[in-house]
């Protein structure tokens, strides 16, 4: 079972905490909302999910899907 990074733009308030604490510079801000700039760098550490005050970014379990579909 793999994990993929997902963003709920509707809940994002643009505080920037996830961008600041992402160790791999996966994330960026665009129009005051979080964007996944480069998912290929993501190491699924979950630092963003741990500190997002609005539950707008998290690692989702991917069940029965190929890696390609998960991207």
């Amino acid at each position: 079972m793999g994990k993929r990074l997902v963003v709920n733009h509707r809940w994002c308030k643009g505080c920037g905490i996830c961008v600041a604490f992402c160790p791999k510079e996966v994330l960026a801000m665009k129009n005051d909302k979080i964007q996944i700039a480069d998912e290929s760098k993501c190491i699924r550490c979950g630092q963003c999910e741990l500190r997002c005050p609005d539950y707008a970014i998290f690692l989702e379990d991917v069940i029965n899907k190929t890696t390609e579909e998960a991207q």
Binding site: V6, V7, R10, E49, D54, Y55, A56, E60
Partner: peptide, 21 residues
């Protein structure tokens, strides 16, 4: 990837109809 669904943890323990807080 964009989603409108909350994580499993948040769905289980929060009244998501009241979110965003």
């Amino acid at each position: 990837m964009s989603t409108e669904k909350p994580s499993a943890l948040i769905s289980k323990y929060l009244r998501t109809q009241h979110l965003p807080h």
